[in-house]
Design a protein around this nucleic acid. Sequence first.
DNA 1: CTGTATCCCGCAAGATACTG
DNA 2: CAGTATCTTGCGGGATACAG
Lengths: 132, 132
Amino acid sequence: MAERTMHIPSGSVPPELACPITPVVELIFSRWTTAILWTLHRDGPHRFTELESHIATITPKVLTERLRALERDGLITRTYHPEVPPRVVYDITDLGRSLSPVFAALANWSDNLSDVERARRSFDAKRKRKRR
Amino acid sequence: MAERTMHIPSGSVPPELACPITPVVELIFSRWTTAILWTLHRDGPHRFTELESHIATITPKVLTERLRALERDGLITRTYHPEVPPRVVYDITDLGRSLSPVFAALANWSDNLSDVERARRSFDAKRKRKRR
DNA sequence: CTGTATCCCGCAAGATACTG
DNA sequence: CAGTATCTTGCGGGATACAG
């Protein structure tokens, strides 16, 4: 873990006081955004409906919200083609691509999910025993 | 970030269908948890009130909730010392420590936060221009 | 096709007060 | 000290309808 003292951006909310990476977390990991970034990163540019059907359970409203936020943050681009019917293509930016080491670290760690599962079962079992 | 809810995914069908790292994200990055894990990892074991005052803006109720969840997931330990007054010490586990590469990747990426800020200003400026 | 515009709800999170 | 117990609230996210 990095031991450096980092600048804490102003305008951030409470938890940052104790943890310098919280701003990054809150920036990147709002719900659905990893799915969107991951898709664009791995499979290239997508149109609105392509993303919609690929993520499957997201509603158009929420997808629009997330895409706007990601575009505003400079992580994806939105390209409008004035055709009939209109066509809009979303793609990941270099800034968005720079997240790949983060994603790789997360993907690596997913090996530990089974340990988490086991810990949960153990914890719940103990709780059940104490209850009765 | 994170589920932002690491708690039992409510009624919704999870986004991990489109993104394999989403489960990890939802596990680790619920609000406050990075601050807790970061603190325990960097500064060693802490008592309840030590965490409370270190994170400063968290309420005891929420801190308890997060600590329980992290304990259940096997990422931290809770040790009760039956003294007078009672003493409880929280510490990070090996499983929790194994998140270091993830945190390091995130800390590294925080250099890009300034780019995000710039992108936001640019985006907002464009919006303003179009509006009038 | 690519979105808005509304309305609505669950629940994480906050405030406050109290206890073994 | 280390938490519960209760009540309230903000808002992310869902459902539905509709528009350019």
